[in-house]
Amino acid sequence: MQTAFSKLDAVIAKYHGRKGALIPLMQEVQELEGFLSQATMRYLSEQMQIPAAEIYGVATFYSMFRLKPKGRHTIRMCKGTACHVSGANGISMALREALNLGEGEETTADNNFTLMEVACLGCCSLAPVIMIDERTFGKLTPEKIPAILEKFAFVQEEK
């Protein structure tokens, strides 16, 4: 548990008793904590009086919910049709190679990046596209990847 229960309780109180509240509640809790831990889901279950299995079922059904912590930066790799036909696969391979991520792995060992594949970022004219946090990088080629990642490299905080 990362957040004090009081903050969590405030969110729960906001949704308690409202119809159809579970998904927005879980979204807001994830916003607060970065991901949905087992402990958090159990706590939600007790407080909302919804079976833990139902909460877990919702968490695993929707791709937005994360059961594991996220890295410092989020890379969203567009896998839309336009990006696909414009060479998104090469970008994806170059990203995995540069981040040293194996098949199925999402977060780098230094916890600096989490790589997520998303259905469509909706800027098809810039294909292929990735987004790192709030910034969009378009018209990519594999060889541009290392320099882009460099901009987000983890630097130890200066004293």
Binding site: K19, L22, I23, P24, Q27, E54, V58, S63, M64, F65
Partner: peptide, 25 residues
């Protein structure tokens, strides 16, 4: 406004309504 949570099938109308109700879509 209800925000989706990332599931293509929720565009299907009966799944969409289940999702608004807070269930698996």
């Amino acid at each position: 406004i209800k925000e989706g949570a990332g599931a293509f099938v929720c565009g299907e109308e009966t799944a969409l309504m289940a999702s608004i109700e807070g269930k698996r879509g």
